[in-house]
């Protein structure tokens, strides 16, 4: 019952948040300098040409009027038409979303695996040199932002030891049998592991660049909670029952220590998705972020709006999902 109430409240706040984002984006991109129409026309176009084209896109109306027109369209599922690409925004955005989702989720999984392994190892070997080494590595991982890691990875694994792809999503010459835009998922489902491998070898470096800082954050926080948990009475009791140190950490301490980390991962995952914008650019990965940068450069107002709204939906959705998972994992919350 309490859960349902929370859920309804969350849906309402989510709607308000999205409205706020829509309003801000809409107005901000209209007051910053730069005219999309002027950029579309060849040099030497007359003032009349500009006025005509401006009217076609409705940009001659007042900003509140424009917002009303756009807003009613959005509510009906129409996000307008991209000025530069001349296609419906919704179609474009949804076409690119799967690429970004696959990259982000892969990065998240890598961050959890790397950070989790570091935390477990650090806890098992606490107060030894190994723990010190892990702490130093994590400090380094944290002090460098994801896009610089991207450059480092390109240099090392793309140029010096070229074992992974550093550009694009898939080798262009390959025949793709896919019906959806979730290439990696579909290649796995179709058991076309040759394609999965090609996709992964393109995704690995950008995903790793996104994952490294998050892995360090996960590793630090989880190790700290684990070490605190290791002093608790029920952990000591499990030791007297004959469980090995590793088993005690894994099955007694971890389930309790993981909750704070989980909340943090939710928040950090949204930052990670934000990071895809630059990382995708860096690796010429054909996702939403790469498209967003093009849209901003070209002042493609409807496309920018669509992408921002979609990012906002993803962010709030992730947060909602984290809260629900938290409630499901914590029996004290579940029973109110």
């Amino acid at each position: 019952m309490a859960l349902l109430q929370t859920l309804i409240l969350r849906v309402i706040t989510t709607a308000v948040t999205l409205l706020g984002v829509a309003v801000i984006v809409f107005f901000v991109i209209r007051v910053v300098p730069g005219n999309p129409i002027a950029m579309m026309l060849p040099p030497g176009a007359t003032a009349e040409d500009i006025a005509n084209l401006t009217a076609i896109y409705g940009l001659d109306k007042s900003i509140p009027q424009q917002f009303f027109i756009w807003g009613t369209g959005v509510l009906g599922g129409d996000f307008g038409t991209s000025i530069t690409l001349k296609q419906p925004v919704l179609e474009l955005v949804l076409g690119r979303l799967p690429a970004t989702l696959e990259l982000s989720v892969l990065a998240l999984v890598m961050a959890i695996v790397i950070g989790g392994a570091a935390a477990l190892t650090g806890t098992r070997l606490r107060e030894t040199r190994v723990e010190g080494g892990i702490d130093v590595a994590q400090g380094m991982a944290l002090s460098v932002p994801d896009f610089l890691w991207g450059l480092v990875l390109i240099l090392v694994f793309g140029v010096l030891v070229p074992v992974f792809q550093i550009s694009g999503r898939v080798t262009p010459s390959l025949q793709l049998p896919f019906v959806s835009d979730f290439y990696l998922v579909e290649s796995l489902l179709r058991l076309r592991f040759d394609l999965s491998l090609d996709l992964l070898s393109h995704m690995l470096l950008p995903a790793l660049a996104l994952a490294i800082p998050l892995a360090a954050i996960i590793g630090q926080l989880l190790k700290q909670s684990l070490k605190e948990t290791m002093h608790l009475d029920y952990v000591t009791l499990a030791r007297t029952q004959g469980y090995s140190e590793a088993k005690v950490i894994w099955s007694q301490a971890l389930p309790n220590a993981i909750l704070p980390t989980l909340t943090l991962v939710g928040v950090q995952f949204t930052f990670l998705i934000g990071g895809t914008v630059i990382i995708e650019r860096l690796f010429s990965y054909e996702g939403l972020g790469n498209m967003a940068i093009d849209a901003v450069i070209n002042r493609d107002l409807p496309l920018i709006q669509g992408i921002v709204i979609l990012f906002a939906v993803i962010f709030t959705g992730v947060n909602l999902l984290v809260d629900l998972t938290y409630a499901a994992l914590n029996p004290r919350l579940r029973h109110g």
Binding site: D233, T236, T240, Q241, P255
Partner: peptide, 16 residues
């Protein structure tokens, strides 16, 4: 061997 601990409030794992 087995232990009967002092504080039953902290000797059981809260999440299991």
């Amino acid at each position: 061997c087995a232990l009967i601990p002092q504080d039953p409030l902290t000797a059981l794992n809260p999440s299991r």
